[in-house]
């Protein structure tokens, strides 16, 4: 078996040789800088670095998620839309490995995107407002646990975001592999991701036991960070982080299985 890394390198080349990807990443940095600078110039009271970071994450994380979903929805479907899938598949690699290389490079893109958000928010806000050490998460992020530091919150927040990013990009990846049309895959995936908050609230109104197993109820994992472990959640919200992760894992397996099944079995007529 020769080098699988070469396949991933190919996929990375196809992502990063497009202006699109650089615009996405650039926009995340630019937006952070713009918000911080405008806020520092126009604000009447003094703004602290962590407060600004907390606020910017509310904008940047959904935007980063959208960008990742666009890349995910396009990564398989665009090969079909452009007809390049034919030349890609007639190489000494099984379809599974070709698909896996795409998935791996997608995860790399997700990691890079989150890293860009992490570094740019912290760095830019430290530069603009001055670094502030020893801050507790309770003050800036509204966490109930008084012992958690802002740094610790930040790291856990990104870890949990990474999990929900992976679930949403895997969903988009599946849609991409099944529908084989870039436009449809991007549109449908974005719709699902953008509507997930609304759908989640809608499903909360349903008083049936299966509601707890709906995907949209579990995409917002960071809410568990803000809950006090001692309180164990209010009686209205019985779910725990473990339960949410288990449900997400279930969906993840279904998305992966479906992507692989469809991609490896179906005839290519593009």
């Amino acid at each position: 078996m020769f080098d699988f890394a070469a396949l991933v390198a190919n996929e990375n080349m196809k992502i990063f040789r497009r202006v699109r990807s650089w615009i996405m990443l650039g926009l995340l940095v630019l937006l952070t800088a713009a918000i911080s600078i405008i806020a520092s110039v126009t604000a009447s009271s003094t703004i602290k670095m962590w407060d600004m970071t907390s606020m910017e994450l509310m904008i940047l994380i959904p935007l980063a998620n959208i960008f990742c979903v666009i890349i995910a929805a396009d990564i398989v479907a665009s090969e079909f839309t452009n007809g390049t899938i034919k030349l890609l598949l007639i190489r000494p690699w099984t379809r599974s490995k070709v698909l896996l290389s795409k998935y791996v490079s997608l995860l790399i893109f997700v990691l890079i995107t989150l890293a860009v958000v992490y570094v740019s928010t912290l760095l830019i806000n430290s530069l603009v407002f001055g670094y502030e050490g020893g801050v507790m998460a309770q003050q800036v992020f509204g966490v109930l646990d008084p012992g958690m530091s802002a740094w610790s919150y930040m790291n856990q927040y990104f870890l949990l975001q990474l999990v929900s990013f992976i679930v949403t990009v895997t969903l988009a990846f599946m849609i991409s592999a099944v529908f084989r049309s870039s436009a449809l895959a991007i549109g449908l995936s974005l719709f699902i991701v953008l509507m997930s908050e609304v759908l989640s609230q809608l499903f909360s109104l349903v008083n049936k036991p299966w509601v707890d197993y709906v995907l949209f109820q579990h995409l917002n994992l960071t809410k568990y960070l803000r809950m006090d472990a001692a309180l164990g959640g209010s009686n209205q919200d019985m779910m725990t982080l473990g339960f949410s992760l288990a449900v997400l894992a279930g969906y993840y397996i279904v998305f992966m299985a479906l992507s692989w099944f469809v991609f490896t079995k179906r005839d290519v007529a593009a």
């Binding site: 196809k14 202006v19 007809g83 390049t84 034919k86 007639i90």
Partner: peptide
């Protein structure tokens, strides 16, 4: 053993 063009030679246009 095979090298092929199937229908049109579609390439990655942005590369």
């Amino acid at each position: 053993h095979v090298g092929a063009i199937v229908e049109n030679p579609e390439m990655y246009k942005y590369l």
